[in-house]
């Protein structure tokens, strides 16, 4: 009986500038029960040889938690952006079909499946995605919050900055400065917090500028690809209303 194999076709490039090294490589690795894309990549590390028998370097990729809470291992698997840790081989290729892996296309490439997502963290800085606490010293309990509020904010607080929403968004491209759905949703999160609310206008004003919420094209792809099922469309709608209100009546509140 021939050993069951997992077939992978992987987009590779040796470094950002080495465009000439852009290529596909194919691999076959031994199948194991409950295998995911990451464990298949780990098998390549143990035997970095392509299907045609050529020696190559192990494929490099980013990963950390392997249980879809850190957001590191995002890549394009069979044409769909997602975390590769939850990409189970038996689901993707029940009959031994080839699984295709590519790096995300909307971020600068680093090498192979690794891209640079620094812009997402910069965006969090721009929208002041934090609570302005007076300090970490003891100041007693925080403000009371209703269970309803917690149920609205908890899903928003699960954003892993993984990049799926930016990858799927048509407004993220070379000619646009759109900040991205993840940052808008974080504005909603912090503006819902009893003390975060006190600085709501700071966050909204960032979203009024170039690349802000006005650049959303309402394609709604973001919510579809979000691995944590964060209601991003809803977030954009709510923040958009708040921004409009701020633009129309903000001067009255001053």
């Amino acid at each position: 009986m021939s050993e069951k194999k997992v077939r992978l076709k992987i987009r590779r490039q040796d470094s950002a500038n080495a465009k000439g090294t852009r290529r596909w490589e194919e691999f076959e690795v031994p199948w194991k029960p409950q295998m995911n894309v990451i464990s298949a990549l780990m098998e390549i590390q143990k035997n970095p040889v392509t299907t045609s028998g050529g020696k190559t370097t192990p494929v490099v990729w980013e990963s950390s938690c392997l249980e879809e809470v850190c957001g590191a291992c995002t890549m394009v698997v069979n044409g769909k952006v997602r975390q590769s840790c939850t990409a189970l081989v038996d689901q993707l290729a029940p009959n031994g079909q080839t699984i295709t892996l590519e790096p995300m296309s909307k971020f600068p490439l680093v090498r192979d499946l690794i891209v640079d997502r620094a812009r997402m963290f910069d965006a969090l800085k721009r929208v002041h995605a934090w609570i302005e606490v007076d300090g970490s010293h003891e100041l007693g309990p925080g403000p009371r919050q209703s269970q309803e509020n917690q149920e609205e904010t908890y899903p928003l607080s699960r954003c892993m900055t993984c990049g799926c929403c930016l990858e799927a968004c048509p407004q993220i491209n070379d000619s646009s400065e759109f900040i991205g759905p993840h940052a808008i949703s974080q504005v909603r999160l912090f503006n819902l917090h009893p003390s975060g609310k006190m600085h709501a206008t700071d966050r909204l004003s960032t979203l009024m500028s170039d690349g802000g919420i006005g650049d959303c094209g309402k394609a709604m792809n973001c919510q579809e690809v979000c691995p944590k099922e964060i209601p991003l469309v809803d977030s954009i709608a709510q923040v958009s209303r708040a921004v409009t209100k701020q633009m129309l009546f903000g001067w009255l509140l001053k």
Binding site: W130, I131, V133, R144, S157
Partner: peptide, 21 residues
Amino acid sequence: GIVFMLDRMGVTFNRTPEGLL
């Protein structure tokens, strides 16, 4: 005090009906 600090920093802790942690 640590849990209260985290609460002030915006951690979305589960709540009781009275709004407490």
